[in-house]
Simulated scan of single mutants.
Amino acid sequence: MNGAGLAGDTRLPEKGLGLALEILEQVARDDRGASAAEIARAVGAPRATVYRVVNSLVRDEYLVRRGDFSGFLLGTRVLELAAIVGARTRPEHAAVVARLRDDTGEAVHLFAFHRSGLMVLDEDESQPLSDRDALLADPTRSAIGHLWLVAHPDRRMPQAPNWRVAPPADDVRAIHEAYAVRGYTEQAALLTSDRGCLAVPIHDDAARPIGAVTLSTSISRLSVAARHVGALRDAARALAPLGSLSGW
């Protein structure tokens, strides 16, 4: 569709607001730039009506035409609204976690502890968890699971239903001893053969572990990943006051 198809200074009638929102949603779903014909088919409205509403949205900068006039993209008004909403709804921990990812260049994830297992609060989208199901099912296969076992020495698997694997007592004892020496937990190649991770606890005001920040890296870099432990601990201290705000 070209610019001639959108000529005129039509106003968006009140009854067209619902259609306008549907159109914006369809454009948002297509990052290539949806054409007016594609939008009309998707929303099930007459093409002439869609053209009229699209024209209003373009005029008010909710939509913009692609440079080759082949379709439409979200405009500056929508992007500004998204930025405002994102700033208001962005979790308070997000800036701390994002800075840690930038500083280390590694995958950083944020977890909360509860009595029945783990909750993923902030997964690194650029480097996601390698085996989320296994991590949340077996506490012996991840550094975060090891830390949960340290934080819950009196819990047994039947009372922690999210864990589907009960760790042998010898393994739990070894995890506790290693944590006592290092002050953090570590695992290598237990979830996937080429990855390992470190986990540093986050404590509440009563010094109880309420969660952890973890760093995952390749096995080849795991031996030097300890250089980031200081940064992980700094982040854990910064995150501690936010625990109650994040529903930990």
Results as ranks from 00 to 15, higher is better:
Gly145Val: 06
Asp131His: 06
Ala189Asn: 13
Ile144Trp: 01
Ala174Pro: 12
Leu74Ala: 05
Ala34Pro: 07
Leu19Tyr: 05
Ser142Phe: 04
Gly145Asp: 10
Ala226Gln: 15
Ser130Phe: 07
Ser116Asn: 13
Arg141Pro: 00
Phe111Glu: 08
Gln159Thr: 15
Asp138Ala: 13
Leu12Ile: 14
Leu57Thr: 06
Ala87Val: 06
Pro13Glu: 06
Glu14His: 12
Leu57Phe: 03
Leu245His: 14
Ser130His: 04
Val43Ser: 03
Thr217Gly: 06
Leu149Arg: 07
Gly105Trp: 00
Ala188Arg: 15
Leu245Cys: 10
Ala20Arg: 08
Gly183Cys: 10
Leu135Pro: 00
Gly16Pro: 02
Pro46His: 09
His228Glu: 08
Leu6Pro: 00
Gly183Ala: 11
Leu57Ile: 05
Ser216Gly: 14
Val85Asn: 08
Ala45Tyr: 08
Ile202Tyr: 04
Leu190Trp: 00
Leu24Ser: 02
Ser70Phe: 03
Leu73Val: 02
Glu61Phe: 07
Arg156Ala: 06
Met119Asp: 14
Ala189Ser: 15
Glu186Tyr: 01
Ala160Tyr: 09
Gly117Arg: 00
Thr192Val: 11
Ile219Glu: 13
Asp124His: 06
Ile39Trp: 04
Pro167Ile: 12
Ala160Ile: 14
Ile210Arg: 13
Pro91Leu: 06
Gly8Thr: 03
Ala178Glu: 14
Leu190Val: 03
Gly211Tyr: 00
Val96Met: 00
Thr104Glu: 06
Val108Thr: 01
Glu92Met: 11
Glu123Leu: 05
Ala240Trp: 13
Arg77Trp: 00
Asp103Arg: 12
Ala83Phe: 04
Pro91Ser: 11
Ala169Tyr: 10
Leu222Trp: 09
Ala207Asp: 15
Pro167Tyr: 08
Leu73Arg: 03
Asp194Ile: 08
Leu129Asn: 01
Leu191Pro: 00
Asp204Pro: 10
Asp138Pro: 12
Arg115Glu: 13
Glu92Trp: 02
Ala188Met: 12
Ala48His: 07
His203Arg: 15
Met1Trp: 02
Thr10Arg: 15
Arg65Asp: 07
His203Trp: 13
Ala225Phe: 11
Thr104Asp: 02
Pro168Met: 12
Leu110Lys: 01
Trp163Cys: 04
Pro46Ile: 05
Val213Gly: 02
Ser193Met: 03
Leu191Met: 12
Arg195Cys: 06
Ala151Met: 07
Val53Gly: 02
His93Asp: 12
Ser56His: 00
Gly243Asp: 05
Met1Leu: 02
Leu118Asp: 01
Val224Ser: 15
Asn162Leu: 07
Ser70Tyr: 07
Val27Lys: 00
Ile219Gly: 09
Arg59Asp: 08
Thr76Leu: 10
Ala7Leu: 04
Leu17Arg: 09
Ala7Gly: 04
Ser216Arg: 01
Asp30Met: 01
Arg115Gly: 11
Ala226Ser: 15
Ile202Leu: 10
Gly183Trp: 08
Glu92Ala: 15
Leu19Arg: 10
Leu191Gln: 08
Ala82Asp: 13
Ala107Cys: 04
Leu81Lys: 15
Asp133Gln: 14
Gly117Pro: 00
Ala42Trp: 02
Val229Phe: 05
Glu61Thr: 12
Arg182Met: 10
Ala83Ile: 08
Arg47Thr: 11
Ala207Met: 14
Leu79Cys: 07
Glu14Lys: 07
Ser142Arg: 03
Asp204Asn: 15
Val165Gln: 05
Val43Ala: 01
Trp163Ala: 10
Leu74Thr: 05
Thr140Arg: 11
Ala166Phe: 00
Arg195His: 06
Asp154Arg: 11
Gly211Ala: 05
Ser223Thr: 14
